[in-house]
Simulated scan of single mutants.
Amino acid sequence: MPIATRAFAATSAEAPLTPFSFNRRDPGPDDVAIDIKFAGICHSDLHMVHNDMGGSTYPLVPGHEIAGLVTAVGANVTKFKVGDRVGVGCMVDSCRTCASCVEGEEQYCIPGFTGTYGNPDKHSAESGQPITQGGYSDKIVVDQAFVLNIPDSIPLDVAAPLLCAGITTYSPLRHWGVGPGSKVAVVGLGGLGHMAVKQAVAMGAEVTVMSTSDRKKADAERMGAKHFLINSDKAAMKAAAESFDLIINTVSATHEIASHLQLLARDGTMVMLGLTTEGLPVFAVPLLWRRRSVAGSLIGGIRETQEMLDFCAEHGIASDIEVIAPDQINEAYARLEKSDVRYRFVIDIEKLDLAA
Rank of each mutant, 00 (worst) to 15 (best):
F244H: 04
M237Q: 11
Q306N: 11
S137L: 06
Q306A: 07
A125G: 07
N51C: 08
K79W: 03
T97R: 14
G63N: 11
D143R: 05
G181D: 09
E337Q: 10
P19D: 11
T5N: 13
P172L: 07
M53W: 13
V102N: 06
A253P: 00
N330R: 09
L69A: 12
V197T: 10
S127F: 08
G301I: 11
T305M: 14
V147H: 00
I321C: 02
G83E: 11
H43S: 13
S297G: 12
H43G: 02
L273E: 07
A15K: 10
K238Q: 15
R290L: 07
P120H: 05
P161A: 11
G83W: 06
L263S: 04
D35W: 03
S252R: 01
D121K: 00
M272R: 05
H47N: 05
V77F: 00
F228D: 03
G135D: 12
S100V: 00
P19V: 09
A225Y: 03
V251C: 07
S319E: 03
A295I: 02
H123I: 04
M48T: 10
A72L: 01
G268P: 04
S252I: 14
G115P: 00
L264R: 03
P16G: 02
A7K: 00
H50Y: 09
A355M: 00
P120T: 06
I248H: 02
D138R: 07
Y343F: 13
S213I: 08
V294G: 14
D214T: 14
A239C: 08
A253M: 13
L60E: 12
G63Q: 12
D152R: 06
E322K: 09
T114A: 09
E278P: 09
V82K: 13
M195E: 05
V141Y: 03
A265I: 03
I317E: 01
A185V: 10
V49E: 04
K238H: 13
S12R: 04
A125C: 05
E105W: 06
D219W: 03
R25Y: 02
Q133H: 14
R291I: 03
S21E: 15
Y136A: 08
